[in-house]
Design a protein around this nucleic acid. Structure first.
Lengths: 300, 300
DNA sequence: ATAATGTCTTTTATCGTGAAAAAACATTTT
DNA sequence: AAAATGTTTTTTCACGATAAAAGACATTAT
């Protein structure tokens, strides 16, 4: 088995959802851009849909014959990228405790444990290394630096530097820039979420990322924009991991975001700076309290 | 051919240089740490040295029999890492012109052209991607973003942010910190180079990197320290590439460094800030003038 | 003529494999 | 006993091979 067809399976599932909405499907290239895959994959999808009697397919005519049933879908776990699988496995081990700083990381062992080739693990580790949690010893193993207090402090230091600058750049953007509409949209999403906070307070994580990415993009600096990947990654796992007072935390954060949005709209740099600082301070606090104190980080 | 023995060859060459200085070699583990390789490699080296009559080897006794001659050495090009070979090839293409922004990068083609496996090229590109010059399209090719004016501006923006902060942190370091001795040593190296600038004005590049890395380290922030890799990489190729007024530029830079060092030693934050800004401004200018204007970078 | 479909080619993603290098273990020497 | 040498096992690094996916080219339909 040399390569899984998860791209096909994932696109197939997404295409099934499309099926419920129309009586016939668009052209192959159109479907391709819609699903974000090549026409080759689109045709594989159509072939199978024809076989399973979901559509009748004759050249341009792709008529929907029946609504998809739950077992037309490929199982969720078969649609994951190998990289995602490896990342999840790796992060589980890392956060499940017993991952002491200084510990060695063994490519071969990881690969065997996850059941994938070493190449994929190697590539993952190289990509992952930019998050600053692991480090390579030349011609030798990787070393785990650990998800320590020091890490969180270094991360947030940069984050604050970057976001303050981005927020200032945002506020200085001309009135006719498209970002103001984006900001309005995010604002109403925040208000909506604030009302429904009881039901779906875990939807905040995703909204949070969209909001901060919008601000960082105003910096028009690829290094700042890219750095948000590090933050997003940490917060992603942080949210999954630390559920203590999640609802309260999110409620507070939504409030801070709304104030922050207000400040941005006022275009008053002083207000922006204050609102941004306030939010980042509490975000840092949240992150810090979630890190087990037990193992103090020592710097040489 | 599945893996070159460049580690062995490089360590062998370095060990030959050691040979000229002593009558007998130290223990295997000692040699290992000295050369930065495992004992396995040390033993391979010793075996060959015995075969070629350089040493007599009997257990602990490793007596030097003769001085190494030039053809005892492995050729320089056989001691390079694959990663280095790929990087050089890649950068040559990138800087040799004809590398328009937006151009596709083809792993297979690169691998064939350089004469290496695709895996190594892939891994190189993943590692290289953190420099912000290339970007991956999911399940597809890489895209060259180009060594443009925009890139240089984004890079220097971060650099200035990071270095100003690091310099301030540096100046605030306690008097008994080891960095002050390092700084003194660097200062005298600068003065020495200033005198000999006529002969070895290209030695500056290496000194420059050591100086700035020392300052960045004072930030005690891995993201700041790691970011210097990006700067170092760009400047490394920049120095190789742009030889115009090299001597004058370096002379100016040495002067600025000395003023910067003076400011640091004064521990006066105002002075540090001013000296740092002044130097970074001219460094940016140097970098910018070396970028061909022809193809203006467009941001969307 | 444009845009779709049908077909063929190239590239990417992933694995298993084997040599180089590291690391672990066993034995000897000081 | 500590530290070296001798020996064996593991891991890393890099390759070629192969299926999935993308992309290019040829043909047909509007």
């Amino acid at each position: 088995m040399s390569k899984s067809n998860n791209v096909y399976k994932d696109a197939y599932n997404r295409c099934l959802r499309l099926l419920g909405e129309t009586r016939s499907l668009p052209s192959e290239p159109e479907l391709g851009t819609l699903l974000g895959v090549s026409r080759t994959t689109v045709r594989s999808i159509l072939s199978r849909m024809e076989e399973t009697g979901l559509i009748a397919w004759n050249k341009r005519a792709k008529t929907v014959l029946r609504d998809p049933s739950p077992d037309d879908f490929f199982p969720e776990e078969e649609t994951d990228t190998l990289a995602e699988i490896i990342e999840r496995s790796f992060m589980r081990r890392l956060l499940a405790g017993g991952a002491e700083a200084g510990m060695q990381i063994n490519e071969l062992e990881l690969a065997r444990e996850i059941g994938v080739g070493t190449t994929s693990v190697r590539e993952f580790l190289i990509r992952f290394s930019r998050f600053g949690l692991i480090e390579k010893r030349r011609n030798s193993h990787w070393v785990l630096k650990g998800f320590t207090r020091a890490f969180a402090l270094e991360l947030t230091e940069i984050r604050e530097m970057f976001e303050l600058r981005s927020a200032a750049a945002f506020a200085a953007l001309p009135q006719d820039s498209a970002v103001w509409a984006d900001l309005d949209r995010l604002e109403s999403e925040h208000r909506q979420l604030a009302n429904e906070i009881a039901m779906r307070f875990n939807a905040f994580s995703e909204l949070d990322e969209r909001f901060h990415r919008l601000i960082h993009r105003a910096s028009r600096n690829r290094f700042i924009v890219d750095f948000y990947d590090v933050i997003a990654m940490i917060f992603h796992y942080h949210y999954q991991w630390n559920k203590a007072q999640e609802r309260e935390r999110n409620e507070v954060a939504i409030g801070e975001h709304l104030a922050y949005i207000e400040a941005l709209k006022s275009r008053d740099l002083g207000k922006v700076d204050a609102a941004c600082r306030k939010h980042l301070k509490s975000a840092r606090q949240t992150l810090l309290t979630s890190i087990p104190e037990s193992r103090q980080s020592q710097k040489p």
